[in-house]
């Protein structure tokens, strides 16, 4: 015999009992119970859990995104810094080179100037010496001419034609001056 609820119900009823199967109240109570359960669970147990799940997912996503972003930023920063460092190094080297060149130039300049000054001084001194010497020679010549005239006047004691004697004396002196230089 099949013991389906229908049969069970019939069996119970046939024995004068009261079958609880297919109660109308049970259908309504099931729905009511489920609705109450659903209401409380969704508000206090499932809703909060879903919120937490969603929030955590968002947080993890955000964390991953921000980590990626920060990493790329850091990489960019690193690259920038590398460029900056190499630039700075280059600049420093440039500066050093430039300074060295400047120093060299300055030194050259200074040396040149000093040399030139020394040269100038030398030339000036020489010029001065030359001039003094020339002056001295001229004076000496004039003195010698005068002296020779005086000597000639004294020696000869003879009055000579001024012009003719002057020319003679001049000639003598010039010959005289030529002798030591030659």
């Amino acid at each position: 015999m099949m013991l389906l609820p229908v049969e069970v119900s019939k069996l119970v009823l046939a024995n004068g009992g009261e079958s609880a199967e297919f109660g109308v109240g049970l259908l309504l109570m099931t729905i009511v119970t489920f609705l109450i359960l659903f209401g409380i669970l969704s508000k206090f147990a499932i809703g909060p859990t879903m919120t937490v799940l969603k929030r955590r997912e968002e947080q993890i996503k955000e964390a991953i995104d921000s980590a990626k972003r920060e990493r790329s930023e850091a990489e960019k920063l690193l690259a920038d810094q590398k460029v900056a460092i190499s630039q700075a190094r280059q600049e420093a080297m440039e500066q050093v080179r430039k300074t060295q060149a400047d120093m060299e130039k300055f030194r050259e300049e200074l040396m040149g100037k000093a040399r030139k000054e020394a040269e100038d001084l030398k030339a000036e001194s020489r010029q001065l010496i030359e001039g003094e010497r020339a002056k001295a020679v001229t004076e000496l010549r004039a003195e010698a001419a005068k002296l020779s005239i005086l000597v000639a006047e004294k020696l000869l004691n003879e009055k000579l034609d001024d012009g003719k004697h002057q020319a003679l004396a001049q000639q003598f002196v010039s010959e005289l001056s030529k002798k030591p230089t030659a």
Binding site: E18, A20, G23, V24, G25, L26, M29, T30, T33, I36, L37, I40, L41, F44, A45, I46, P48, T49, T51, V52, R55
Partner: peptide, 30 residues
């Protein structure tokens, strides 16, 4: 007949049990 049967009682029990579980484990601060 609107009287509650054994099934009502069991339904209520399991409902309470589920409620207890849900409220003790699912009711968290966001």
């Amino acid at each position: 007949d609107l009287r509650p049967s054994k099934a009502h009682l069991m339904m209520a029990f399991s409902g309470l049990l589920v409620l207890l579980l849900g409220l003790s484990f699912g009711n968290r601060k966001s």
